[in-house]
Nucleic acid binder design. Structure first.
Lengths: 340, 340
DNA sequence: CCCTCTTCTGTAAGCGTTTACATTCCCCTG
DNA sequence: CAGGGGAATGTAAACGCTTACAGAAGAGGG
């Protein structure tokens, strides 16, 4: 709004050097006498000079900003991921342009385009990538397309391609272990609940099915249920099912799992005596209920930090080879909702 | 990364017009024949031209971006606010630079500076403003200082000054009503729980005290408690207090209120038979517990939308007078945790 | 003390737009 | 059909920085 109007010229003048020298000082170039450097620094300080990012952007072709795309920030998992990402990025001098794309493909596409038009240095896509789950080539395509412009980092999603990097947690393993543990503890009917067919959700499902198989249980109808991600919707849906004599539930997020609590309450079932419940994400939700919920910690912080670190290395040194994909192991956090 | 290298020149050449004309088309100037406009549009489309925002920024002195500062995005209230803000802003062609400042003043200051250096068009500060609560002139100062550069919009905070606008909900009223209702329903000892001395928190406290006063109750020690905003911390703190024979609690957010549930559970108190609980924010947390929580809906969506709308009017027309402060009424959402 | 080599500093040409101002083009009017 | 006026278009100067390249200043050797 108000123009500070202190430009590099003013600094140069007052310090009796050329603007080139000021610029060099600003960028920590080593071809400046320490004496000149100090002189310039002092003037910069006195004048309160801040370089104009637009002009810098024109010259450097970057503004050191990263686009973060989430389907919805008001989801506890997404918002914590964004928090971790932002923090790490800020620590490295990058700022975040946030975009709430929604779950629709068209929305995502247009938001990606918008971010690219802002000339971000890289894009981070958090969750909800259907691509790679085999049923949306269109999603794969637009991501690949975008990756021709800037490197893309996907968190808990998976798209292969030039310039595309991903960080995932080992959902399959985690779900396998949890399911296996339930079965081995004597549970007869473990039901799997999900609200999406995203890459992560599919891996979780695979882990669940693997556990059934290895324990000689055949998957029957009604053991894998598609629900809506709203506590009460889940409850109502479960209540509506006639013969749901499940004794354990494993859900792809904590909100869904909370729906099971509500269902249990309604049916008069005790947790964990009558039914056990395992949630996912180990979010704040998991300790809101009573008994507190056993949940799978998918290591959001670690994944986010690793992602940012790899990204920074790549940006600072494009020649560098960085791992295309990293996988982090989840933790099963045992609380009162299970009776292992 | 990869340079598209399609610039306005290319468009101009191919369309046989000057770059000025292309620029005019781009900005919807009316001084262009519709024929020329179409011709240019067509070429822009064919070439897939996207203007370089840095160059545009240099010329226009804006990149149409808004800085959003939150103390922590991983709080349900903050993240939902950011979601609403982002959505509304994106709908108006602005993008958001997000900054997680933490609660410390120094952090906030440096983040604000960073955002300003990015030449944002305006700043939105969400919650956690201690300024105006009388105990931090330093905070008032740096906000006023920043407001000399760009307009600042504060959500649920209050700082007066040139270029500073705020949107708040009527916390005092809401807390007054809830407390009053509890007292009138026969509760003898209503305890107020807070984790901060922010502007909002202070208003809530004032509403609580007003209700006590109007009902002829004198505020005694132990009726207003400062707690840490972590479910288990709240529980432990309450458990540690010897003679806390409260029969109702009113908390400044839902997480704190959940701590009361945990405390009740531990003490064997039934909700709402033995104690009533009122939360704040009407967040997802409020329906996670059992019985579900009565909570005060502070109208985040409305406040955010109003804020963005006022901001846009101001930015598009700086002469325009927009209200300095708007106040929105809260709703008391009654659920099972109270026995009014 | 002069010359060479190295290191530091300055000059000026971009970077890709916007936009004030100049110019051209049309369409009327007389 | 000349001339005037207004609308459409073009020209070129910003915008504020980075950086290749040129030039100056020191250091060191003969």
């Amino acid at each position: 709004m108000k123009d500070d109007s202190i430009k590099i010229y003013d600094v140069a003048n007052k310090a009796n050097v050329s603007i080139a020298t000021v610029s060099r000082v600003l960028h920590g170039s080593d071809k400046v006498t320490s004496k000149t450097r100090e002189k310039v620094m002092k003037v910069i300080d006195e004048l309160g000079y801040t370089p104009n990012v637009f002009a810098q952007g024109l010259g450097l072709k970057t503004m050191h900003s990263i686009g973060i795309l989430v389907p919805t920030i008001s989801d506890t998992y997404m918002s914590s991921a964004v928090a971790f990402l932002e923090q790490r990025l800020a620590g490295n001098g990058y700022n975040c342009i946030l975009s709430n794309s929604g779950f629709e493909l068209t929305g995502k596409k247009s938001h990606v385009e918008l971010l690219l038009s802002k000339r971000v240095d890289a894009l981070i896509l958090v969750g909800s990538t259907y691509a790679g789950s085999g049923n949306s080539d269109e999603e794969t395509d637009y991501i690949r397309e975008a990756a021709r412009q800037v490197p893309i980092f996907i968190i808990n999603g998976n798209v292969q391609g030039e310039g595309i990097y991903s960080s995932v947690c080992d959902d399959l393993d985690a779900t396998f272990e949890a399911t296996d543990k339930l079965i081995k503890s004597g549970y007869k009917k473990v039901v799997f609940l999900t609200d999406s067919h995203s890459y992560s959700a599919n891996k979780k499902r695979a882990g669940y099915e693997k556990a059934l198989k290895e324990n000689g249980i055949t998957l029957k109808k009604g053991m894998e249920l598609d629900v809506e991600n709203r506590i009460h919707k889940v409850r109502d849906y479960l209540l509506s099912r006639k013969s749901l004599n499940a004794d354990a539930f494993i859900a792809t997020n904590d909100d869904i799992a909370l729906g099971v609590y509500k269902y249990a309450m309604e049916r008069g079932l005790k947790v964990p005596e009558d039914i056990s419940i395992v949630g996912y994400n180990n979010s704040a939700m998991s300790i809101a209920c009573e008994p507190e919920m056993t949940s799978i910690d998918n290591k959001t912080e670690k994944i986010c930090n690793d992602t940012v670190d790899r990204m920074i290395s790549l940006l600072e040194n494009p020649e560098l080879e960085i791992p295309r994909k990293i996988t982090v192991k989840c933790d099963l956090i045992e609380r009162g909702s299970t009776n292992f």
